[in-house]
């Protein structure tokens, strides 16, 4: 009986969570459709969430590109296919690792910050104050963060792709003596413009996941400082799981896995 009760409780909690997220998405879309956008705040958030994440994204991508190159270059040269390393690095970066790693890094840095900031506003009654003034927390807080992430995450991904390829090219040359011209030529053959666009589409979807999960966790914070801590952790964990899951589904459909 206890197991059934717990199953029932978990199911209800999951459905409540799902309903809450769907409502948040609906309200955000309504605000966007009615052009109820706080442009100045959106610009500030672009800087805070996007520019603030640039260095960590660049570093992560640089090392990722370098390690892919390191792992593949030696083997490729041994089998006489060193000219394909550029393609391997670029292919992996643009289609998979660039969008996904950037999203994971941003989820850790920005998703947690969004949940903590909004959660603190909940426990200090600032959200109630907004509602009391007749202001929608969704329009006031969620929409600027959603727009900022939807703009900045794809941009960060472009930088991540470039730096990852550059890092890979450097290691390929330094470690396996693969000519940069050969590396670039291989990269251009392996990846088309549509791959870049599909990668950026993934980034856009990941941005929405990070923004909605972070904001929802923040807005549903209960229980003071401990509650803010729980909301922050949950925002990161849930975002990262959803990013990995969504990445698989999108790759399956976008890149012809079916």
């Amino acid at each position: 009986m206890r197991i059934l009760e717990r199953f029932g409780e978990q199911t209800i909690a999951f459905l409540e969570y799902l309903g809450g997220i769907i409502t948040l998405i609906g309200e955000s879309i309504r605000s966007l459709v009615h052009a109820q956008i706080r442009y100045a705040e959106t610009f500030v958030q672009c800087y805070e969430l996007g520019i603030g994440s640039l260095l960590i994204v660049l570093l992560t991508s640089l090392f990722t590109g370098m390690v892919i190159s390191l792992e593949s270059a030696q083997q490729a040269v041994q089998y006489g296919i060193g000219s394909l390393v550029g393609g391997a690095v670029t292919y992996t970066s643009v289609r998979e690792l660039g969008p996904m790693l950037t999203a994971v890094v941003v989820a850790g840095r920005v998703g947690s910050a969004i949940a903590a900031e909004i959660g603190s506003m909940v426990v200090t009654e600032q959200i109630d104050a907004l509602r009391s003034m007749g202001l929608s927390p969704v329009r006031f807080l969620v929409v600027p963060r959603l727009l900022a992430l939807a703009i900045m995450l794809p941009l960060l991904t472009i930088f991540a792709d470039i730096i990852s390829i550059v890092g890979g090219m450097w290691i390929a040359q330094a470690y396996a003596h693969i000519n940069p011209a050969s590396f670039i030529s291989s990269a251009r053959q392996a990846v088309g413009f549509d791959d870049v666009v599909k990668g950026l589409l993934k980034s856009f979807i990941f941005a929405c996941i990070i923004a909605f999960v972070g904001c929802y966790q923040g807005l549903s914070t209960r229980g003071g400082a401990a509650g803010v801590g729980r909301a922050t952790t949950s925002a990161v964990v849930i975002s990262i799981i959803l990013i990995f899951g969504t990445n698989f589904i999108m790759s399956y459909f976008l890149f012809g896995g079916h």
């Binding site: 506003m121 009654e125 109630d128 104050a129 907004l130 009391s132 003034m133």
Partner: peptide, 18 residues
């Protein structure tokens, strides 16, 4: 939201936006 224009709540800890 319309009706709240007639009412205001002064919160215990002010709840001003940081």
């Amino acid at each position: 939201v319309e009706l709240r224009q007639k009412t205001s709540l002064a919160f215990q800890f002010a709840a001003l936006l940081d």
